[in-house]
Computed example of a mutant assay.
Amino acid sequence: MSEWILEFIDVSYSYPYSRQAAIQGLTLRVPTGKKCGLIGQNGCGKTTFFLLANGLYQTQHGVIRWRGQPIHYDRTFLTQLRQQIGLVFQNPEHQLVFSTVEEDISYGLCNLGLPIPEVARRVQQAIAQFDLSELAHQPIHHLSLGQKKRVSLADVMVLQPQLLLLDEPTVYLDARHTQDLIGQLQQIHLAGTTIVLASHDLDFLYRWADWIFVMDQGQLVLEGPPQSVFAQRQRLEQLQLGIPLAIELIDRIKAIVEEMHAQRSNHPNSTNG
């Protein structure tokens, strides 16, 4: 198995009429089998990175490699790529296209030309996996935001992708729906899917991720295990990202302990050695 499932090598992309590149000279490698967090200020290039990775946008410079092979932009290759790299948009309204939940989940499978019995089997499996049985025949527009996000995740996972990309999946979700999502992602990862998740929720990523990417102005500026990345407090504050609450508390406790030691050492009754 390759060490990297997805590689961006010196990739650049600019939107029409934009003065600044959304992605510029980006080199980023996603480790196979890991849960990866992607952070950065709004406008840093996270969403563009996802759209390039999924083949919805084409690179203007540089190379994207999927499992060691460069991405091609012909229809056959892209159809296969989008089956293997699943993308869940921040807004589920951009992803859900059919009238009912069951129809929407079956859409991607029908596009693959699978036999009807296989489509039915996999749709029912996804409905059970994402706890959508009571909603299967419900109109999409009757669903809550949390329910729509669950359906959009089922839409992607029914294709059994090897890499799952999620753009701000917890935004606007309450605590219960967020916990449900975390549980679903854990099961997806345990089944063998590599995950890259973009989020502003640093506390969640600190607990959940194996690896963190930090982007700024279309470039990768930091990466590593959460403990290593979030230990670089000064750099993260320069990027206006802050640090997780757990690290903040640890730093405060350390400061209090150091102050207590200093006070004891300066006390007239203290002894040395």
Rank of each mutant, 00 (worst) to 15 (best):
L112A: 08
G113T: 10
G113H: 13
L114M: 09
I116G: 03
I116W: 05
P117H: 06
P117D: 09
P117S: 03
E118K: 13
V119S: 14
A120P: 00
A120N: 15
A120F: 01
R121T: 11
R121G: 02
R121C: 10
R122T: 13
R122A: 10
R122D: 13
V123S: 03
Q124W: 02
Q124I: 04
Q125F: 08
A126H: 04
A126V: 11
A126I: 10
I127S: 09
A128D: 06
A128G: 03
Q129A: 11
D131T: 13
L132E: 00
L132T: 10
S133W: 00
S133G: 11
S133E: 04
E134R: 14
E134P: 05
E134M: 04
L135F: 13
A136W: 03
H137F: 04
I140H: 00
H142K: 14
L143T: 07
L143R: 14
L143V: 12
L143H: 02
S144N: 14
S144Y: 03
L145I: 13
L145G: 14
G146L: 02
K148L: 02
K148W: 07
R150Q: 09
R150P: 07
R150C: 08
V151K: 00
V151L: 06
S152I: 06
S152G: 09
L153D: 08
L153V: 08
L153G: 01
A154G: 05
A154Y: 03
D155C: 14
V156P: 00
L159E: 06
L159W: 02
Q160E: 12
P161A: 10
L163A: 10
L165I: 13
L166D: 11
L166M: 14
L166F: 07
L166I: 06
L166H: 05
P169H: 12
P169N: 08
T170V: 13
V171R: 09
V171G: 04
V171P: 06
Y172F: 13
L173R: 01
L173T: 03
D174T: 07
A175H: 09
A175Y: 07
R176W: 01
H177K: 04
H177T: 03
T178E: 07
Q179M: 06
L181M: 13
L181N: 05
I182R: 00
I182A: 05
G183V: 10
L185G: 14
L185I: 08
Q187G: 07
Q187R: 15
I188P: 06
H189I: 11
L190D: 14
L190I: 14
A191W: 05
T193H: 05
T193M: 04
T194A: 14
T194S: 15
I195K: 01
I195D: 00
A198D: 12
A198M: 12
A198E: 07
A198Y: 00
